[in-house]
Structures are given as structure tokens and as C-alpha cells.
């Protein structure tokens, strides 16, 4: 049986067909795999940041509201990262002996840049807007996870379209009690343009 197979393989047509089939199988596996990849692969991404900023301390223990620093979320598409000066608003007097705060202060004094590592990233053809979500009362934690418990910020939810659509089709679990919203837009232009 195996011998017959080798025999047949001498024919160049059969060879091409076999090779093509093998390539196709791999492609299909990769393709299907990509579109069905589980959430947990994207989760837990937690790069080392230039300053070991702890959300657990600031948002958890100190209970500073999210919008205090990420004030863009109500006014802009991007929630934004606070400027170094905003950090220095407190840290001019708070914990000035910490080497990290001294690093922060040095950046602020020199006018240099503080480059944080991006954790949540969307492809360039996705135009997510924080405003309608925040205004509808969706808690930041719905997508960003229990930030107030994270010493190092990490990704909680894969930001794939399936997750967006699941919530847009039935947003009620994410909305505060009494919200009148029952559905969010599902047309392409809601996010792609």
C-alpha cells in the first residue's frame, strides 16, 4: 500500500497536487485558528513600564477615580494618559524620596518624554470612542478588568470584534441599572471608517 503511494508520487502531477493539498491544509488551519483564537491568548499582556506605576495603589487603595487622570474618556475618543505634569501635581510633595518619582521629576524638569508601553492596542482600522461608553455608564472595568487590583497593568479582555459585538448586541449586563439602552450600533461604520 505504502509502496503504491511512493509509486504514484513519481508522477509530477500527483506531487504538485499533494504539495498543494498540504499547503492548503496548513493555510486553513492557520486561518481558522486565527479567527477562533481564544481570548486567553490576548489576555495577561503586562509589559514592564518605565515607571512601576501601581493602579492597585492609586485606583485601589487611594480610590482616585479613573477619570481624574484619564479625563479624556468623557471628552475625546481617547481616554488618554495623564501628562507628566499631572503626576507631579501630587508628586512634588508626595513620596519624593522614591527613585521612580525622582525619575519622573527629572523628566518633568528636563521637559523630556516619558514613553509608556502600550497595553491596549486596536488595529488602525478600528475607531473606538470612549465617550459613548462612559456616558452610557459602562464601567471602565467592563473592558479593562479589575484595574484597581492590578499592581502592574495588564490586558484583561481580548479586544477582538467578537467581544465588541457581543456587548453591542446585548449591552444590558454592562450597563447600570435603569439604563434605557437595549442595543448598541452594529453597522460597520460604527467602528470602521
Amino acid at each position: 500500500m505504502l509502496e503504491a503511494f511512493w509509486q504514484a508520487l513519481r508522477d509530477p502531477v500527483v506531487r504538485v497536487v499533494c504539495a498543494a493539498t498540504a499547503v492548503c491544509v496548513v493555510l486553513v488551519v492557520v486561518f481558522v485558528g486565527w479567527f477562533t483564537q481564544p481570548d486567553r491568548l490576548a489576555r495577561g499582556f503586562a509589559p514592564t513600564q518605565p515607571i512601576p506605576f501601581s493602579h492597585r495603589l492609586h485606583a485601589g487603595s487611594l480610590a482616585i477615580p479613573c477619570l481624574h487622570c484619564h479625563s479624556g474618556a468623557e471628552k475625546s475618543r481617547a481616554a488618554g494618559i495623564p501628562s507628566v505634569e499631572e503626576c507631579m501635581g501630587c508628586h512634588r510633595v508626595t513620596k519624593t524620596d522614591s527613585p521612580s518619582i525622582q525619575k519622573l521629576a527629572a523628566v518633568w524638569k528636563s521637559g523630556g518624554v516619558l514613553a509608556w508601553k502600550r497595553v491596549h492596542s486596536l488595529p488602525s482600522h478600528v475607531f473606538f470612542d470612549h465617550r459613548p461608553h462612559v456616558l452610557a455608564g459602562v464601567a471602565c472595568q467592563t473592558c479593562h478588568g479589575p484595574v484597581q487590583e492590578m499592581a502592574v497593568i495588564s490586558q484583561h479582555m481580548s479586544l477582538r470584534m467578537g467581544n465588541c459585538l457581543a456587548c453591542h448586541r446585548d449591552p444590558r449586563p454592562a450597563l447600570p441599572a435603569g439604563s434605557t439602552i437595549v442595543r448598541a450600533p452594529e453597522n460597520c461604520n460604527a467602528c470602521h471608517r
Binding site: P47, G80, S83, E85, W116, R118
Partner: peptide, 20 residues
């Protein structure tokens, strides 16, 4: 794995809102 960087203003000019 690298997803790039986010560089906020060091001193944000008054009224400047990223994204607006």
C-alpha cells in the same frame, strides 16, 4: 509582543486634548 508606546505630554498646553 511589543505594541508600541504612548507618550503623553510632559506639560500639557492649556486646552490641548489628545483626540480633539
Amino acid at each position: 509582543k511589543d505594541r508600541g508606546e504612548i507618550v503623553p505630554f510632559t506639560k500639557r498646553p492649556e486646552g490641548a486634548k489628545p483626540g480633539v
